[in-house]
Design a protein around this nucleic acid. Structure first.
Lengths: 218, 218
DNA sequence: TTTCCGCTTGACCATACGGTCAGGAAACGA
DNA sequence: TCGTTTCCTGACCGTATGGTCAAGCGGAAA
């Protein structure tokens, strides 16, 4: 486990007003948990380590969250909501070039800024979605159906080639998330260095160009 | 953990010749381990469960493999070798349509037939490649450099558009492995049913068409 | 000042886990 | 047949983990 034990430490001047304490500690713990779950997986993570990263005693953490599983559940659901919101880029776009282009930009930015969340999500799904299954069957299914219909509309309007909308969505998810989930591999192949600003721009452009051309939109 | 405790059971008529016993039990254990590690991650997997799946007492498993970590190491390295071999499809191809087309076919077939291996690999890399780092830095780096050069050659020969070879490789890996690593999500979105033969064919064709068109090869 | 109630925490507990070991069974070579 | 090597396994052990608890702390409301 490479996570430094340096506590994240409470944001500067600590407001001690009762209401804020709960709010503040919960987000502190959730951040620490996301990091540790991403690095070690659910099974490999320990409550003690999460507490260390959050800079709190373990018993205090378990005062806010009833159990490790409860905490994990909260982390996963937060990520899910976050992603769903970030996906609005697809809507309200006149066509695939703008819509899918913006979606790729947004997803790549998330992979860059929140790789931990992406990893936790990937881990959850890979292990059969034990805690998020209901969301997959309801919210995600609706979301997917809606966007597939949108893509189909674009196809019918002659704005892009007749590709299978579902498989296009899978390709979008796969390609963009790869930069987070397999970031370590990419970093290693990049000479051990994280992608630079320039390289991230190039990555975004590569992905956008290949996919937009791949669906006959440019 | 959904893994049934039904032992994989020794392949029919047990040849009890000494030489074969070791060989046979080792592969039996490795298969069970791949399955359990894929479903639970390294941290979530237990030696006891692997032993149950293999249909052997825990102590017997630890007779063949010195430790859980040792067993995991063997599993990961096996997968790595397997994949590297399967990637020869790219070579000896006259151009991107044949080479990359065959590579996508091969990778999709692996995702379909060996999803567990893919998941273990993804998990390993996501957690920072603790046991396979040296291979990433040597074998994988060389492999990648070589194939990037091959792709560059095709570009220079005007057989495809001038895309960034590395990012093309990432897209190939991401898209094909997605069907294994996120198979559960895809299955859920498919009405809870695994992809049928027909659907797998459609998936392959979708991926091939989008990517080959995306790189200007068709 | 007193009371209340949410916050904090060190000490503690039961369990599950990875790993060991000693002794027996089974195959092999002579 | 006998000795040797490999295979097999129940019982056991130390440790780490998730979780509990009871006692204290400190704003805030009366």
């Amino acid at each position: 486990m490479s996570t430094s034990a340096q506590p994240l430490r409470r944001p500067m001047g600590r407001p001690v007003r009762r209401n804020e304490i709960r709010q503040q500690n919960e987000t502190l713990i959730l951040q620490a948990a996301e990091k540790v779950f991403a690095e070690a997986g659910f099974g490999g993570a320990t409550v003690q380590l999460i507490a260390d990263v959050a800079g709190l005693p373990k018993a205090n953490l378990l005062y806010y969250f009833a159990s490790k599983e409860d905490l994990y559940r909260r982390v996963v659901r937060n990520i899910f909501e976050f992603w769903l919101h970030a996906a609005d880029s697809l809507d309200n776009a006149p066509g695939p070039v703008e819509g899918i282009g913006a979606y790729i930009d947004a997803k790549m930015e998330i992979s860059r800024r929140h790789p931990d969340g992406s990893k936790v999500w990937a881990s959850e799904v890979m292990h059969g979605a034990p805690v998020i299954q209901d969301y997959l069957e309801t919210t995600l299914r609706e979301w997917t159906t809606g966007r597939a219909a949108l893509i189909q509309r674009w196809i019918d309007e002659g704005k892009m080639a007749a590709v299978n909308p579902e498989h296009l969505l899978y390709m979008l998810w796969a390609t963009t998330q790869h930069y987070a989930d397999f970031g370590h591999q990419i970093e290693t192949l990049n000479g051990g260095q994280p992608l630079s600003d320039t390289q991230w721009r190039a990555a975004k452009e590569s992905v956008k160009t290949m996919i937009l051309r791949g669906i006959g939109a440019i």
